[in-house]
């Protein structure tokens, strides 16, 4: 009997939850704000769905509602991706160690 591909995706999902659990517990508390902004940025990988939606269908210039919603979702996700990664970068750059010289 063949296994439904859904089961494989479910396996990935469950195992990723466990990976997430252990990885996030090891994040130092002082970096919890960058953690939130970076998880924000990576969850915008939903943009792959938006791109598929935006590019779907016919080659003539009449766009369906589905296409237009795709464009909008691309816009929102792009704000998030660029904003999320760059603001994380900006924050992480500020974390400095004590200078050696006194």
């Amino acid at each position: 009997m063949e296994i439904d591909p859904f089961i494989f995706r479910l396996s990935i999902f469950i195992l990723s939850i466990f990976i997430g659990y252990y990885v996030v517990w090891s994040v130092t508390p002082s970096l919890h704000t960058p953690l939130m902004s970076v998880t924000n940025a990576i969850s915008s990988v939903i943009i792959v769905g938006a791109i598929i939606a935006g590019l779907a269908g016919n080659s003539d210039s009449d766009f369906t509602i589905s296409n237009i919603l795709g464009f909008l979702a691309i816009f929102l996700a792009a704000v998030n991706i660029f904003g999320g990664f760059l603001v994380t970068q900006r924050m992480l750059q500020m974390y400095k160690k004590k200078k050696k010289d006194k």
């Binding site: 995706r9 990935i12 999902f13 469950i14 990723s16 939850i17 990976i19 997430g20 659990y21 990885v23 996030v24 998880t39 924000n40 990576i42 969850s43 990988v45 939903i46 792959v48 769905g49």
Partner: peptide, 10 residues
């Protein structure tokens, strides 16, 4: 998306 969703969710 599934991996990311699970990571962010947890």
């Amino acid at each position: 998306l599934i991996i990311t969703g699970a990571l962010v969710g947890s």
